[in-house]
Write a protein that binds this DNA or RNA. Sequence first.
RNA 1: GUGGCCUUAGCUCAACCGGCAGAGCAUCGGAUUGUGGAUCCGAAGGUUACGGGUUCGACCCCCGUAGGCCACCCCA
Length: 419
Amino acid sequence: MARPISAPRGTRDLLPEDSAAWNRAEAIARDLSHGYAFDRIETPLFERVELFHRGLGEASDAVEKEMFRVGGATGSDEEKAEWALRPEPTAGIIRAFVEHGMHVRPGPLRLWMLGPMFRYDRPQAGRYRQFTQWDVEVVGDAGPMVDAEVIELGHRYFAELGLTDVVAYLNSIGDAVCRPGYRAVLVEYLAAREDRLTDDSRRRLRTNPLRVLDDKDLDPEVAAAAPRSVDHLCDACRAHFDAVRGLLDSLGVRYELDHRLVRGLDYYTRTTFEFFVAGRRGQQQALGGGGRYDGLAELLGGRPTPGIGFGIGIDRSVLAAAEQEAPVPEEPPLVAVVSQQPDDLAARLAAATALRAAGLRVRVDGSARKLGRQLESAAKLGARWAVIVGDDAHTVVLRDLAAHEQRELTLSEVAAAIG
RNA sequence: GUGGCCUUAGCUCAACCGGCAGAGCAUCGGAUUGUGGAUCCGAAGGUUACGGGUUCGACCCCCGUAGGCCACCCCA
């Protein structure tokens, strides 16, 4: 036998036994998107590298070390430098927004997307090189209400999935007016304590100082006394943040302030948040995250347009739901068409086709096995009902495989009998 | 990207000190004289992740590679 080929590192196959949980996780995302009046958008799986450089920032991890490069058939280095698989959805969506002149549409625009993202880092449980994300974006609304609305939507998603104890960690990191001032204060503070920083943090001090606060090895004393972004907000950012909190409180949405939550992508302004299962912080188990990005459209060559959104990891949400043993709803009952006659395939197929036309979920046994075998097989495959095709072309036996009861009726009566 | 642990049949795991690669479950077939999950019998399933090395002899010891997991890094 030829040598088998395995899936690429950090990817996995969605197997049939996992599909019910995934179907549900995706269906809830679609239904909520629809119910909250978002419109679907799809963007390419790969984009120009420059889009991510400009959008996410050169110093972000996603760009600096996790970019999944793709080349064409000729595979030149030049081509490889040109495109990358998308590490996150927002940059592509805003690129499309600018490219199609969507700012002239009646707004604010509400867009959603569900699909695979790619990051070339070292895999671990819940962390994959290809993972699926549900994303929503509101573009063109600078007010605080949408911030609260979107965070509530995230919470609702987890609730409908059956996850309890999900917390939104919340912070505000200011905007173009006040962030430079805060950044200067922070750099000054950290520079004075450079000897107590890790190597990574010392490097980030120059490239992306806010990220130093993300460092889990940050000296607790240094962290505790570090200047907080919320204490250096300009009046507008202050008012925005207070309003967001007030709205969340009025909705009864659970959140906790986290002054060290800065998020890794450069485009964020003002509101930032991440969703965690309570008590599972720091286990790279963020279920989702997002924030406001009022400067992104301009960075990508569009006119200044505010925006806010989140990405929720479907993989991790399914994982968390399984860990909490959230119930997966049952599929509609399965009907198996079987027969004692080895040579009546036409009758079996006709019966199955008629039942399917009547809206039932049907599989049909095409084997010449004895009836007992066929019923055994039907039961193992999870069928609730068996329809036994007999000599008489007009009547069949409908057997309840769970109750071990059966009765004779016509084919057209079966759907109603199953109800 | 850094460090650690791990990898034997589809799954869960055995195999003494280096001495013939096995079991349970699952799958498929047969029987239980023609309506099911039980029971019995049988079959199939292996380059012991891959490649080297040591040895009379390697699943076992050594090196390398790949993959998985854990902790980092970071995020979903």
